[in-house]
Each structure stands twice: as C-alpha cells, then as structure tokens.
Design a protein around this nucleic acid. Sequence first.
DNA 1: AAAAACCGTTCACTATCGCTAAACACCTCG
DNA 2: CGAGGTGTTTAGCGATAGTGAACGGTTTTT
Lengths: 248, 248
Amino acid sequence: MPDYPVGAVRTNLRIVAALSSRTDAGVTELATELDLSKGSVHNHLTTLERLGVVVAEDGRYRLGLRLLDVGMQVRDGMELYQTARSPLAELASSTNESTALVVAEHGDAVYADVCDAARNDRRVRLGTRLPLHTTAAGKAVLAQYSLDEVEAYVETDGLQRRTNRTITDAASLRDELRTITDRRLAYDRGEAFTGMRAVAAPVRLPDHPPAAISVLGPGERFSGKRLEEDLPGLVISAANQIELTLTD
Amino acid sequence: MPDYPVGAVRTNLRIVAALSSRTDAGVTELATELDLSKGSVHNHLTTLERLGVVVAEDGRYRLGLRLLDVGMQVRDGMELYQTARSPLAELASSTNESTALVVAEHGDAVYADVCDAARNDRRVRLGTRLPLHTTAAGKAVLAQYSLDEVEAYVETDGLQRRTNRTITDAASLRDELRTITDRRLAYDRGEAFTGMRAVAAPVRLPDHPPAAISVLGPGERFSGKRLEEDLPGLVISAANQIELTLTD
DNA sequence: AAAAACCGTTCACTATCGCTAAACACCTCG
DNA sequence: CGAGGTGTTTAGCGATAGTGAACGGTTTTT
C-alpha cells in the first residue's frame, strides 16, 4: 500500500501548509517550492477557492478562515474542553497567570484551550503544537503512557531539542516521568522556550485519551515557594475538579 | 471545465465537513451519508490520518486539532487582526460587553476575533460564519460594497432568513445600507439570533478588504440612550483608532 | 518604446490513481 | 453457532491528476 492512498489529498495539504506560512502566494511560487507543475497547483487552488477554503485576489491566493471555523467546531465538540473550561479560567484568575488545557495528538502536545490572565506572550496560543517531551503538560501526558508507548514515542518522534534545557536523553526522560507519576506534577524549566516555565498536572479520565492542564509564564515569576508549593497545589486541585465532574 | 478541477479534494472536504459535525464517525456511516463506497471513504480517512488531520481510534475516526492550528496561524497572520486586537479589547472592557472583529469572506461575515467581556453566550465564537446581511458588522461591511457588488451578493447568496427580523427584501437592504454609510453605524436588532443585538462600525482601509467591528449582547442591555448614543460613540472611536494606526 | 521576462491561465495528453463492487476478517449479538 | 454488524483489503476499470507547452496579460528591462 502506498503511504497516501489518495495522493491528491496529500498534494492539496502540502499546498495548504505552504499557504499557511505566508500571507499570500502566487501559482509559480508554490509550484517551484513544492516541485509541482503550475497547472496542477492552479487546479488545486481553484478547487480550494470554490470550496471556500482559499480566497483569490488579483491573481494571488491566500487561505481564508474556513479552516479556523472547522477547527473551532472540533474543539468545541470536545467533552473535555467543555468541562475544563471554567476550572481553567478560575485557575488563571487565582494564579494570575496563563493556563492551558493540553491533549496529545500524533505525538504532539496540543493546546486545546488557553486562558490568558493578561497579555499573552504569543508563543503559546490556541492550537499550538509542541513535542510532548518539551512541555510540562506534555510530560504529564507522557507519564500516563505505558513504557511501550513512551518508547514508541521516543522511537518515532525522537527527542528533538528545542532549548539547551530540553530533555534529549531517553533514560532521563523515563526518570522524570516516574517522578511526575509519583508527585502528580510536571515542571518545565525553559525546556520549550528559554525563559518560560510551567507547572502541569495530569488529567486522567476513563475512556478518554490522557490530558493535562498547566500554568505557564515567565521564569521570573515562577520560582521559590510559589513554584514549589503554591502553584502546584492550585493546579492539582483544578485537575481534581475536572476529573471529578467528568467521572460522575 | 468541471466545477472542481481536483475532484478528490472535494470528496475529501466533504468527509471533513461530515466529521466536523460529530464527535466521531465510522466508515460505513460516512459512506452512506456521502453516497460513496466504503473503500473510498477508507482511503480518504487513512490519508487524512497519515497527514495528521484525523485521529483513528478503535476503528472509528474523528477530526484532530491540526486544522485549528492552521486556522489560528492564518488568523494570526492577518495584519488587521494584529492592529485591531488591543482596540477591540479596550472596547470590550469600556462597554463591558463582547466585541468582535468581522471580515467578509465568500459572502459570509466571519468573526476573526472575539473578545468576551465576561461569559460569552457561545452563539458567536471565533471563526463563526453568518450571512452578511444578518449581522450588524456584516451590514457595515456590505455598506462598503459597490451597488453591483451588493446585487451580486443578493443574487448568489440570497437573503436567507434567520429570525423574523432578518432583512429579506433587497430594497430594504439597500435603504439600510445607505443609512449605515451616512451614519457610519450599523444595528442588529435580533436579525441573526432572536434576543441578541449589536452595534457595528465599518472599518475602511486602503488595500484591505472591507471589515467592521461590533459590540454585541443580549437585547435587555442594548436599548435606550446606551444603544443610541453611548455604544455608537465608543464603537466608532475604536474603529477610528484602528483605521489610523493602519493607514500611517 | 520596443522587447524581454514574468505572471496566471488554459489546453491536450497519458500514465496514474481514485473509485466501485465484492470478498475478507473480525467482532458482537441472539 | 450463524446472522448481521463492523472496518479492511483486493481486483480492475474508467476517470483524472499531473505534465509540459502554449497563450494572453502585465510589468520590468533595455
């Protein structure tokens, strides 16, 4: 079996991906970048335009907001999001920091909800995807995996480095995951973004994929007793609240 | 030329649309609904799964959050959004109501940003699409169209009714658009959702498609002097601020 | 002001591949 | 145990996605 049974869909999504990283693009530009013929790119673009995904303007093309609508619809349909919503908002106001709900998907930690206590730093926003092992919430999710699943993750995705503090050693990762399981708490000390820290608690639910919630912010505010005691207590109790409302 | 040069993309997006309206789905279920063979649906689903758009679980399939990421990326890339962000937030806090940034796309009013003063009513969220003529902001956008463009909109999209107050008559629409242009202000008195009102101001920018910002909320709070004077003043001055920062 | 160079669009062609229908493997029932 | 569900796989054919070249338009170069 070929890797992609419907090859045209792959081509199409390659075009969408190329468009998503720029404000707009021309046919030739995309054709050369993706190594396709101009005619083919043109066909895909007109198809996407007819379907309302792409907007054509003066012979140039850009992605519209249709995919945002679909994505938001998916997110709103998540039972976990619905119940985590208000606990997450309360956690944000009680800590006066940004909070997030994270689920695992295809080896990524995906931010399914983000509450900004105030100005967000724009590095983590709704929908952001980061390698699981580089974030507090991601590690809290990994800690719920079986040893085989963790190994499979390390094998397929690799322990990609993002900062000089990122865990890139499989043994260290296993050690940390054990600690996380024991203490029900995960830390991120600048492992995804330099200078950014986070505290996360796993959210375990029957018949649900593993998830986690986290509090994140600049390193200056995340230290001492606040980092070691205050934030952990608030995060864990919020996680408890979510688990309880969803297991009744 | 056929309507969709790359037919497989159309099939694929039909499957995505079907998936987006439910939590998950099976192959047979989708095949019967879309009038496709099981094998074809299966091919599309495995392709989407390999590409990270769909998540397979126990032989059932659901949309993942990849499209949300793409959609948010598109939104964040919009220059208008970036500059409207803080004025919109300020407008939300000064009115203590929800505010929105709306752009037109394929005949829809699309909510490119939504600030919730408090609990949102969930009927309008980020990415929501409504017919242009049914919302205050949408009408503020239509008022920037030429007469031909308005006629084209009425012709292709039709004046679909959403509530008993929706404008469904082309002549009434033209009259109202003229008033909106003159006063630089558009109202929605329950034309999209019964009991929901809004005040909107057009945002005109050179080299940018027409846009608008609006304040929206329950009808009880939107009446009298507040509706006729206070809110209009605040909305228009916010629109001014956006236009000025973007035309320098 | 030519003309060269670029663009997006269109066209004819063909090897590919998307789609169908049927068979298959697996599961859960009564 | 078989009957009726799944999701998956297969064989095969007809449609089509992609190519490469040509077309008309605009912009840039000379």
